[in-house]
Design a protein around this nucleic acid. Structure first.
Lengths: 226, 226
DNA sequence: TTCATAGTTCGACCGTAACCGAAGCATTCA
DNA sequence: TGAATGCTTCGGTTACGGTCGAACTATGAA
């Protein structure tokens, strides 16, 4: 008597070692690129690509294209919940593994990403703007609220001028070191430019690293918390 | 690379269609013989035997020898919980089985989930118990309050006896059709058994569907609202 | 423009495991 | 004691799917 949903397809999807590794790697909520996931899974890029499209079709993960990178994250909390529950069952017979750490500290702190602020500082700014209601997020889209217009103007940015330009005002950009959103778009660019003008930061020529001045650190923390 | 237990083995175990059929058939908490399960799975007896020993090794099911029969049942509530959760994912993907008929509607209304009540009725009961302070939820854990002990006793359940058994008294289980918690654990089992004793419900033999009697409907609404 | 990097698709190879039937135990019943 | 039933094991076949490298597409950098 075959009743209820067919669990074998979903389970089989999770049941391949490479795919299970991919899903486990995504369990912390970060978004990783196809190449990184190939490394995590211990398979070649072409193999991983096949797995990723299967997982996407199965709605266990969700892809997000960004430039020439393609980031993947778990589809939603329910998926994470199922994985967690499966780990509970699997734990009854042991078999655990290890983990690796990150690298370039300076770049992770603050850097330029297509002319806007990225790294921990970029992510912190983005979250602060969300928290104070300056930005509104929905379905991977982000927009500037009325509150946000007031804030940006106070920060020294001419929003009306930015709106005149064809380029999108706000875009969320996935941070490669933090794996969280930061602010892109013409507003993101203007924010970074403004920080440079006011002497908060200094860009290292020929490199993406950003140096934060003492004044910049004070000011940044004051405005964006932290 | 990775951390946490290896979920791929357990998932692969569930991922085979024949084994998934076997596990699904056991979801109502009954113990079935190898021959019956072979029929459920749609494979030959020798094939089923192989699957059953794999599932046993994987601790998803538990065999019980009785004479020349060998009965199998799910290993415990956790296994049932994982299966329910997987059904939730599968249902969302639209991977329901071909057979959709009156029985599906009945299943969503009230069904057995490893010996406890699931479906809309199960969820409603759970929420009513929370609302009246009989159950307390925190961090995915659920426990019986003093108020709850009084209530359960009034319902005809010997809580002291349940506590003596090793099995956990209360446990929440995610309902695949409602996507909300319902009550599992030995109390959940006792509640269902009590409803059957008092003639509120009648289990359809060989199926997970539960039939609610007229008296049961009155009584249930009276006690659990709605 | 040209070059480099990220990812996808294709083709071929190969291993695992699902499957069945037949023979082999084990248990119960006559 | 045999005969019947329930299940397991074995051997052989088959097919599905995971794997890689190479060719191809798309995007960004110089």
């Amino acid at each position: 008597m075959k009743e209820g949903p067919d669990i074998s397809q979903v389970a089989a999807l999770i049941g391949d070692p490479a795919r299970a590794n991919i899903l486990t790697a995504l369990m912390d909520g970060r978004a990783l690129t196809a190449s990184e996931l190939a490394g995590e899974a211990g398979v070649g890029l072409s193999t991983a690509s096949g797995h990723l499209s299967k997982l996407t079709d199965g709605q266990l993960i969700r892809p997000r294209k960004q430039g020439r990178h393609k980031y993947f994250q778990l589809a939603d909390d329910d998926v994470a919940g199922v994985l967690e529950a499966l780990m509970g069952l699997a734990a009854r017979r042991g078999a655990t593994r290890v983990r690796t750490g990150p690298r370039d500290a300076q770049m992770q702190q603050a850097r330029v990403c297509y002319n806007h602020l990225a790294g921990r500082m970029g992510v912190q700014m983005y979250r602060a703007l969300l928290a104070r209601g300056a930005l509104a997020e929905q379905d991977d889209e982000v927009s500037l609220t009325d509150t946000g217009v007031v804030f940006a103007t106070g920060f020294g940015i001419d929003i009306a001028a930015l709106r005149d330009a064809r380029a999108p005002l706000c875009r969320s950009c996935l941070d490669w070191s933090e794996r969280r959103n930061h602010l892109a778009g013409s507003l993101g660019r203007a924010m970074l430019a403004r920080m440079e003008e006011t002497g908060w930061i200094r860009r290292v020529p020929g490199h993406r690293v950003i140096r934060v001045t003492a004044r910049g650190e004070r000011g940044f923390n004051e405005v964006f918390g932290g």
